[in-house]
Structures are given as structure tokens and as C-alpha cells.
């Protein structure tokens, strides 16, 4: 009797492990349109409404916990925001002036304005789930292909770039955040208004996550000749060539430079930035369904 129990127990374990390995092998071997991927998407479509309902139901409790956490850092944040506000007021004045000049010059050269978010057919979606593992930074939203969402479309919040769509079902999608290890965004550093004269074309880099620090991003491959200082802004670089089109429209804010690594030996410099979007506390996001590929009329064009 005892031997039979032991045999049965071991058999159950062997069957479960074999099933896991078969699933792993099959999932890894098939394309994204394969049976297991389809089953996974179908199951997510079914479970997404339940997940959305649960997300709404527990929001008050989640907010309460978030409020308690926020209260600890509120005083320090208030002081830093006051300082930032003073700087921003000066920047707004300078930018108003620059914008007026820019419009006049663009009119002279017949150059279209860079696409605004509103022109990129944004679809607002609610965040319904998030990956708990530290190895991935993804979240699920409650809109999918039926709302016009497709893989690789840019996702933004009210503050700035959030990430891109990495998988889509009919009623839900998965968003890979900027802080995911697989993320990379071509970006441009824009000098502060008091240094606009030093802003040079070519200050392009690649925004990558800083592994293990969710509130920190890194801009890599910035040419050493470009002087970057604290407070400079980083925005998406957008389309640079027709052959290798960027997934992200140009000019979407990503973050503010928070530190500069002064390494003498490297060919490129590396700067750290604090993302504008609070990636750990997102309730709603917007998916830009009319991205660079679908809005050719909005690209910069030089008139005849």
C-alpha cells in the first residue's frame, strides 16, 4: 500500500514536470501565431474582463496603500517641486519665445509641425494588471485589436512615454514598459532653455533601463562632444530614416537628466534620467494607434 502511494505520488510529479517541459518546448518552437500563443491570447481575452473588474474593485484599497507610502515622501517632493516650478516658469517664458520664432521659420520653409499626440489617434485604456516578477516590466491594458491597437505602437501617459505594445488580443493588450530589459528607445537630449544656444543636432542616444532601479533610465551611446547637464530633457528622436523607421513618434517626453557619468575612457558618454511618467502607479495610458507608420502626412516635409 505504501509503495503504491509512493509510486502514484512520483508519477504525478513526473507527469506534471513532463507537461511543463512539453509546453515550454512547444511554446518556444512555434511562431507567435501558433496554437499555444492563440490559446494564451484566447484565455487572456476571457480573463481580461474579470481582471478589469478586480482591478476596479480593489482600487480604493490600492490607493489607500499608495497614499500611505506617498505621505512619507510628500514633504521632500514638495520642496523639490517648488524648485522645479521656478525653473519651469523660466523655461516656459523662453520656450514661448522659441516657439514663436520656430513657427515663423517653419512657415518660411513650409515645414509641417511635428505630430501632436492628438494627431496620432490616441486610444485611452485602463491598466488592469501588472507582472509581479522582477525579471519583466509589463502591464496589461483593457483595450486590444478591436480598438485599433497593434503590436509595437507607442504607449504614453499624461506625463510622457511609458513603453510600447508587445502583444495584443481582441480585448486586451500587453505593454512592455521602458524599464523592461528588452526596451530601447532612440532619443534626443534637448538642452535647457538657458543653454539652447549650445543645443546641437546629433545629441542622439539610446534610452535603456537601469536594471534593478525602476525609477532610473540610462541614455547610452551619446557622443562625448555633447555637453549634457542636470535638468536637460530627453525626448523621443522619432523617425530618422525610411529604411529603419522608429516605433515612436518624435518629441514625446521621456525624462529629465538626473546624473551624468563622467567616464574618461569611453567613446560615448552615459547619462541617467528620471522618467516623467510614474511607471509604478499608472491607472490609465494612451496607445498611439496612428504612429509614425500610419501617419505619413504628419512627417516633416520640405516644400518644393
Amino acid at each position: 500500500m505504501y509503495k503504491q502511494t509512493v509510486r502514484r505520488r512520483r508519477a504525478v510529479l513526473a507527469v506534471l514536470i513532463a507537461l511543463c517541459l512539453i509546453l515550454l518546448t512547444a511554446y518556444f518552437g512555434e511562431s507567435s501565431g501558433g496554437v499555444l500563443h492563440s490559446v494564451q491570447r484566447g484565455a487572456l481575452s476571457v480573463l481580461a474582463p474579470i481582471q478589469e473588474g478586480a482591478s476596479r474593485a480593489v482600487k480604493p484599497a490600492r490607493d489607500l496603500v499608495g497614499w500611505v507610502g506617498d505621505a512619507f515622501g510628500a514633504k521632500g517632493e514638495r520642496d523639490s517641486l517648488r524648485k522645479e516650478n521656478v525653473v519651469l516658469r523660466r523655461q516656459v517664458a523662453a520656450l514661448d519665445n522659441a516657439d514663436r520664432q520656430n513657427r515663423q521659420l517653419a512657415g518660411l520653409l513650409a515645414i509641417d509641425k511635428a505630430a501632436e499626440i492628438a494627431d496620432l489617434a490616441p486610444v485611452t485604456a485602463r491598466v488592469i494588471g501588472r507582472s509581479p516578477t522582477i525579471w519583466y516590466s509589463t502591464l496589461n491594458i483593457d483595450k486590444g485589436s478591436s480598438a485599433g491597437i497593434a503590436v509595437n505602437q507607442a504607449v504614453v501617459s499624461a506625463d510622457g512615454l511609458v513603453g510600447r505594445v508587445s502583444a495584443v488580443t481582441s480585448g486586451a493588450s500587453q505593454v512592455t514598459l521602458l524599464t523592461d530589459q528588452s526596451s530601447g528607445v532612440s532619443a534626443k537630449v534637448i538642452a535647457r532653455p538657458d543653454r539652447l544656444a549650445q543645443d546641437r543636432i546629433g545629441s542622439l542616444g539610446l534610452v535603456k533601463p537601469s536594471i534593478g532601479k525602476p525609477s532610473d533610465l540610462v541614455v547610452d551611446f551619446l557622443p562625448r562632444g555633447i555637453k549634457v547637464v542636470l535638468g536637460d530633457r530627453v525626448v523621443t528622436a522619432g523617425t530618422q530614416s525610411d529604411a529603419l523607421e522608429s516605433l515612436f513618434p518624435p518629441g514625446i517626453p521621456i525624462g529629465l537628466v538626473s546624473a551624468v557619468d563622467a567616464t574618461e575612457l569611453d567613446l560615448y558618454q552615459r547619462v541617467h534620467l528620471r522618467p516623467f511618467a510614474t511607471l509604478r502607479q499608472l491607472d490609465f495610458v494612451q496607445v498611439l494607434t496612428g504612429g509614425p507608420k500610419t501617419a505619413p502626412g504628419k512627417r516633416a516635409q520640405v516644400g518644393p
Binding site: 517541459l21 512539453i22 515550454l24 511554446y27 494564451q40 507582472s131 519583466y136 509589463t138
Partner: peptide, 14 residues
């Protein structure tokens, strides 16, 4: 977990 987060099927299960 693997299904709801669109992860590689079988990793969390294993």
C-alpha cells in the same frame, strides 16, 4: 500566471 501575463508557457508552472 503565464497565461494572464503572456509569458512563456510552462516557466512559472515548472
Amino acid at each position: 500566471v503565464d497565461t494572464m501575463l503572456l509569458q512563456t508557457m510552462g516557466v512559472s508552472a515548472l
